[in-house]
Design a protein around this nucleic acid. Structure first.
Lengths: 258, 258
DNA sequence: CGTCACCGTTCGACATTGTCGACCGCACCC
DNA sequence: GGGTGCGGTCGACAATGTCGAACGGTGACG
């Protein structure tokens, strides 16, 4: 955005660099210079200058054989440092472990980031099955219990989400703004949210809000597992599990007040 | 670096932004504007412009109450995306899980990044004890088995490390360049490295090199645990464990050739 | 209660830098 | 052999990022 003289707006080259990193975080994760330039609507010379600098600070790496670019190692350290400094997460660790032990399910904690749920903590199911690390994953708002909790207590986010097209992920995904609003009303009444095969077939979740002092919802904690373990035969969340999740959320909320 | 006309060097504002993010990854993880400016030798107006832009792209957050800055949520997603695209890690996952099951110890995979070992994969010990996620952590090169492996097969890195002061972390840490060089010669001869209470008191590790096609060492895989489980009474690595680590490293190296 | 110091923030002049078109060598394909 | 598209370089110059000066706010101190 340009006007007479410089408007004290954002620094263009930093915004472009950030857009480049976000691009490289998508899809195959590996792009040629021409693809990066085309995707961002930049001349190749411009894109190359930015990539060269990002490479120099290790935010980007270039494959020596193919010349294609991908995200660099420095970002892992920064991402982890963000986690380490995340107070919500650090104050939730013990409660999350306890919830996993008690419920026998995997536990995650998520916050709102960029129109999705960003997982900031993940405790594996307490069994020997092979599991993949969920930290850093982005989950859809409308199709997960975590997302419904965040939507229920954020009017702006909720309005923005309803304006956007709700993607159908399974045959049970909520895809109309009206249905979503009805469900969010129920979430606010109940104080917790559930999803049953709306995000992944065969899988269900229960989540509850984590509140900062003053009541603002800053995140959600929840459990996930196979639908027959989380829900009864009518796809309703099992009351015992709901109670455990709600207790953990309340305990974390109290911990944030100290 | 400035000369007549613009030298096709790095873009200053992107380098400054990266330095700012690295600063925020250190220490308390939270800095005021004046501290950031002072730390990087920049005028406050300059630092503010960069922080405002980093905040706008969610790479930085500002505490509403104190006005202090910290790393932002977008970095977690980028860090995780780097991991997801990391071929060394994706090809190592199964072998790492198998090594943890077989050895009964925690397993990590590390690569060289910015003069340290960056942990790109971590499998918890197969037991119920509370453990903290090691992915993204930076480990010292001279005081860990992982680091010694990386140093042993990288002459430039080794020379650079010996020029730097070797920090004493425990009373067993190697602190002279001569001792380090002697140890690295042994590592090359043996094909694996060991540390015994050189990094953390009471803890030991064994690591072996992961090689890309052509033989270049691109990472190290290793186990860690209490020193009495990893070593015999003379602080020597137990041969059965060494064999397991070496086998896993060789298997991963072969997987990288496919 | 008034003063002081330092904070984060804003603004605009202007010097410097980042932009980007033109061109390059290379690799691949027909 | 010619055509196409790649990553990359270079330098003119327009646009931007820099940064000094000033601001209001806040907390500490006497």
């Amino acid at each position: 955005m340009v006007s007479v003289g410089t408007v004290p707006g954002p620094i263009q080259s930093i915004e472009r660099a950030a857009a480049m990193l976000r691009l490289l975080a998508r899809g195959s994760g590996e792009y040629g210079l021409a693809e990066v330039a085309a995707s961002l609507g930049l001349p190749k010379g411009t894109a190359h200058g930015i990539l060269r600098t990002l490479q120099r600070v290790a935010f980007v790496e270039q494959d020596e054989e193919t010349g294609r670019y991908r995200l660099g190692a420095a970002l892992l350290h920064l991402g982890t440092s963000y986690l380490d400094a995340n107070e919500l997460r650090s104050r939730s660790l013990n409660w999350a472990d306890a919830l996993a032990a008690r419920s026998g399910q995997e536990v995650r904690i998520g916050v709102h980031h960029d129109g999705a749920v960003l997982v900031v903590h993940h405790v594996f199911r307490p069994d020997d099955t092979m599991q993949t690390l969920g930290i850093g994953a982005m989950l859809p708002l409308h199709a997960t219990a975590f997302g419904k909790v965040l939507l229920a207590y954020d009017a702006d986010l909720s309005a923005a989400t309803r304006r956007r097209e709700l993607t159908s992920l399974t045959r049970r995904t909520i895809v109309t703004p009206q249905s979503l609003e009805r469900v969010l009303t129920q979430v606010r009444a109940a104080g917790w949210a559930n999803d049953a095969e709306e995000y992944l077939p065969g899988e269900a979740s229960i989540a509850a809000p984590i509140r900062a002092p003053g009541g603002l919802v800053v995140g959600a904690i929840g459990i996930s597992g196979s639908v027959d373990r989380i829900c009864d035969s009518a796809s309703r969340a099992k009351p015992a599990l709901v109670s455990q999740v709600a207790s953990a959320a309340e305990a974390i909320s109290r911990a944030l007040s100290d």
